[in-house]
Amino acid sequence: MIPFLLLSLSLLPGQEPEAPAPPGLARYRACVERFASAQALELRGLLEFRQSAGEGEPKTLGYDIDLRAFRGPSGRMELRAPEMDMHLTMVGDGENVYLLDHEEKTAMIFGEDFSTLAEIAPLDPFQAWADDAPAEPGEIEVLESPPGLPLLTGLRYRSSDGLETLWLAPNDRLVAASLEMGEDGSMRLDLVLTGSRILDQADPAAFAAEVPHDYTLQESRDVQTDFEAALLAIGEKAPDFEVRTLDGEVITLADLEGKTVLLNFWFRH
């Protein structure tokens, strides 16, 4: 029995797991590496997401959870790991942090207290996970299973091919999260935690049917709608602007009068 699966302080740097990594492991590791250099933002709030177990209406759940959120110098942060097909944008508004996953075309909202982020992140808790995890994807070992205990504060959940679920103790710390939603409405929410115990393997049907013990359903916001609400309205006259090409040529909207203009706002780093 290993009570603290995800956090191990005795790891050697550079130690690589022999067994194939569980799905998403590389992603988590990259998340942690990037997050370690992020500017932390102290927030309290809810993890909100919509989930669907594949049948019936998608449900909106809110978890009051220990959660880490991040804020870059300009109120946003971008995480890129092209070799892992990872491209995340996080935007903080002082209350919530919005995470957009450009690769997976998903978004999530969260807020939290993450005062110990910098201490936790460099320890790479995933090494322990990789070492201990079963080789077969989807097979999470049940290390401790006290039936009936209301300890759930988070989950790792995959609804597409197979299921992996963590039931977590109240003091767990979340260091990274990712959410993928399939076009068919399926959802995979991955939470990376330290100090966690795997308490049980969840039955997806049970999870889908009810909000976990001691948690109440929260209002959810659609991140897409929130961001779009801040944009210019359809039909509104766009303000003139000035941009510059790499060669220094100045282009204004006035220069483009009579043309249909597609503006793609983006950034790389």
Binding site: R76, E78, T89, V91, D93, Y98, L100, H102, K105, A107, V223, Q224, F227, E228, A230, L231, L232, A233, I234, G235, E236, K237, A238, P239, F241, L253, E257, G258, K259, T260, V261, L262, L263, N264, F265, W266, F267
Partner: peptide, 25 residues
């Protein structure tokens, strides 16, 4: 000026400079 808070955001402006369409993500 365009209220962009998340990236990517795309706009399409018509020939008259009015917003025809916009989308976050």
């Amino acid at each position: 000026a365009f209220g962009v808070q998340a990236y990517p955001t795309n706009y399409i402006l018509g020939p008259d400079g009015r917003v025809l369409w916009r989308r976050v993500g």
